[in-house]
Simulated scan of single mutants.
Amino acid sequence: MPNSPNLVLPYIEAAQAQKHVTHNDGLRVLDAAVQLSVLDRDLTSPPASPSDGDRYIPASGATGDWSGKDLNIAAWQDGAWAFLAPREGWLCWVADEDVLVVWDGSQWIDAGNVASLNPASGGLVGVNATADTTNRLSVTAPAALFNAEVDNFNFKGNKSAVGDTVSFQLQQGFTTYGEFGLIGDNDLSFKVSDGTSFFTSFKIGNADGEMAMEQPLGLKAYSKSSLPPVSPAGRLIWVWDDADGAQVAYSDGGGWKRIKDGTAVA
């Protein structure tokens, strides 16, 4: 008697006697396979007192009535075990673990560990969060790790045109207070916000690497008695009690010098 190609459901033959037998056999297969959910996938021997309709995935090394049916679907129907061999792509809910698994052709794996989601269905992926059409990848977690597979690892963000933006936004309460990236041009910009307005602190030109301050530069203030170490050279500070009045000073690696005349802070 021919069967259907996927679920191997028995067809009713023309002029067949006792058609209800074939029909009911097909319904039993559907009852076991449709909306597939099993109670457990770790047992190697059948439970002593199963209830009608109970389903399991016999673990490797199955014994007794499950012998030779490792990783199949075992369904208790009409007082006996019926078995379904899974096909690649079958999904199954494992009730005692609250996990969705998928048959990859040789084993059941967690559906979240499928080797490829390329592309993810609908283009939305949420991890402990709900993704939407704007935030198509949404993650709620204490941390996220991206690890180099071999040697190097690059974060990449690509925009379509020079006037577009690709940036990192740093938020509190979903309000952005810090942003850096290629914002409206191809210079690297660093911005802050009071929650309403944005202020560019500085930019690094993409053509020459030159840094341009967009806001006044505030130097850390020191007294003559509390000057920081002179190394490394090239740093700038504000000395508020120099003998000639408040001064901007620089370190030459050997001492702190007034920037106005190169003499030592005194």
Rank of each mutant, 00 (worst) to 15 (best):
S67M: 03
S67Q: 11
G68A: 04
G68E: 09
G68I: 08
K69M: 13
K69G: 10
K69H: 13
L71A: 07
L71Y: 06
L71Q: 15
N72T: 11
A74F: 02
A75P: 07
A75M: 12
A75E: 08
W76K: 11
W76S: 10
Q77K: 12
Q77R: 15
D78Q: 12
A80W: 01
W81Y: 04
A82Y: 02
A82R: 12
A82W: 03
A82M: 08
F83W: 04
L84Q: 11
A85S: 14
A85R: 15
A85Q: 15
P86R: 05
R87N: 12
R87A: 06
E88H: 02
E88W: 02
G89N: 06
G89Y: 01
G89R: 05
W90T: 06
L91E: 07
L91R: 06
L91W: 05
W93G: 03
W93N: 02
V94M: 03
V94W: 01
V94C: 01
A95C: 04
A95N: 12
D96N: 15
E97Q: 15
E97D: 13
V99F: 08
V99R: 04
V99C: 06
L100E: 15
V101E: 14
D104R: 08
D104M: 02
D104A: 03
Q107A: 15
Q107Y: 04
I109E: 04
I109Q: 12
D110T: 08
A111Y: 14
A111C: 13
G112T: 14
G112C: 10
N113L: 07
N113P: 02
N113R: 15
N113Y: 01
N113H: 13
N113A: 09
V114A: 13
V114T: 12
V114Y: 01
A115H: 11
A115M: 09
A115F: 09
A115R: 13
S116N: 09
L117M: 13
L117Q: 15
N118K: 03
P119E: 00
P119L: 10
S121D: 09
S121Q: 07
G122T: 13
G123W: 00
G123L: 01
L124V: 09
L124T: 05
L124Y: 11
L124F: 05
G126L: 00
G126E: 01
G126M: 01
G126T: 11
V127E: 06
V127R: 00
A129S: 11
A129D: 14
T130Y: 00
T130W: 01
T130E: 04
D132T: 11
T133F: 02
T133E: 12
N135L: 09
R136V: 11
R136A: 14
S138R: 15
V139I: 15
V139R: 00
V139P: 05
T140I: 07
T140Y: 06
T140V: 14
T140F: 07
P142S: 13
P142W: 10
A143L: 10
A143G: 07
A143F: 08
A144Y: 03
A144M: 12
L145W: 09
N147V: 05
N147P: 00
A148Y: 00
A148H: 12
E149A: 13
V150I: 06
N152F: 01
F153V: 12
N154D: 10
N154E: 07
N154Q: 10
N154S: 10
G157P: 00
N158C: 05
